[in-house]
Computed example of a mutant assay.
Amino acid sequence: MEHWQRNLYTVWFTQILSLTGFGFVLPFIPFFLQELGVTDPVELKQWVGWISAVPGISMGIAAPIWGALSDRYGRKLMMLRAMATGTIILAIMSTVQSPMSVLLLRLCQGFFTGTVTAAATLVAAGTPSDKLSSSLGLLASSTFIGYIIGPTIGGLSAEYLGYRVSFLIGSGVMLTSFILVLFLVREPKEGRKQRNKENGKRGISAFSEAVRALPWKQIGPLLIILFLLRAARSMPTPFLPIQVQLLRGKVEGAAAIMGAISGVIGLVTAISGILLGKLGDRHPRLKLISIFALAASILVLPASVMNSIMGFTIFFVAGSFFAGGLEPLMQSHLTSLTSAENRGTLFGIQTTVGSLGWAISPLIGSVLSIHFSIPSVFVAMSGFLLLASFVARINYKKHR
């Protein structure tokens, strides 16, 4: 097995652990807020919107910095940083007594963690270009597998052990992934070569040079598509638990049901990530993104009018299948347009753009849910996917 393959499989497994740790409780934040005393429906939706948005804001600020530092000091170090801080933040969350404390910790989470970006940067730095789509597709599946295991087990843990214990369990799982990366992952050769080459460069000048070296004419329109895709996929996530609670009619038992739904969504998006990754190695990526985003837009829309948990889940899961592999496919397309030594900077900028979508969409969802209803959030998700499909189609026709 080659060096890049060993890294890929090791990082893939540690990412499953990492996202399992985060998934143990974070999907159930709306229920945890109610335990902290937030029971007014409007106030709850406002807190859910802001607590979901602030990690995107802080990650959008921090990501280019971490990306440039990864180009200079190494991809492995950035993974260790993200996992170590994630371990600490989850442990502290088990002690909070107010919604404001949750918000502040989520702000820190966005600034200091980012395990997905750190892992993708490490894998992309050492993977042959003809294997990028399939490798990043496989890596993306780790995110969704983690969100199968984490929420499924975490939902049961939250129901029977409580949210605070679940935070501690998640922290322990994250710590395990940190230890595995520390001892098993090796720095990609491309990263070592670039740091030797850039040894004399420092700070802002090195970062600005890396930014200028990116092919902006090619990647600019693609970053717009990435923003739309992230906004679409992030918008309903914070409000899914509330929708499940409304369809069920009570909060008791909702965490376990939400965990099961999240597990199914994670499974189909993992399959989608692998499938689209393989298709992306053989077919035009922008054409695939246009087709799959359109299919996701059409399938998600009926979920907004379903009056049962089963009906809602069927349509939302179907839409999640077609939407699940879009971001890693776009990521591989962007990566293929950038030289290996500048991919850390690219991934940092990608994360900033994606984080803007992550930050804005929950706030839009909060406003829609307060002034209209929770189902209107899913209508908006469908609209963002449709717009992403349209922009991808235009760019595909322009460059084919």
Score class of each variant (00 low, 15 high):
Ser336Asp: 12
Leu132Cys: 10
Gly150His: 02
Leu301Phe: 06
Ile265Ser: 00
Leu275Gly: 12
Leu180Cys: 11
Gly220Cys: 09
Ile374Arg: 01
Ser58Tyr: 11
Ala380Ser: 12
Pro30Gly: 03
Ser171Met: 05
Leu180Val: 14
Leu301Asp: 10
Phe13Asp: 01
Ile57Thr: 13
Gln331Ile: 09
Ala210Leu: 08
Leu182Gly: 05
Ala256Arg: 06
Ile364Cys: 11
Ser18Cys: 08
Val377Ser: 00
Thr351Glu: 11
Val211Gly: 00
Thr269Leu: 08
Gly383Thr: 10
Ser308Thr: 13
Phe316Leu: 10
Ile65Asp: 05
Met79Ala: 05
Gly49Ile: 07
Asn342Phe: 15
Gly263Ser: 08
Leu26Pro: 09
Trp12Phe: 11
Leu122Gln: 14
Ile374Tyr: 01
Tyr73Cys: 03
Leu286Val: 04
Lys217Val: 12
Ile61Arg: 08
Trp66Asp: 04
Gly344Asn: 09
Ser134Leu: 01
Ser382Ile: 10
Phe312Leu: 04
Leu44Glu: 02
Trp47Met: 05
Glu35Tyr: 06
Ala213Cys: 04
Asn342Ser: 15
Phe316Thr: 05
Val391Phe: 11
Ile298Ala: 09
Val391Ala: 09
Ile370Ser: 06
Gln350Tyr: 05
Phe183Lys: 14
Leu226Trp: 08
Thr313Lys: 04
Pro238Ala: 10
Arg285Gly: 06
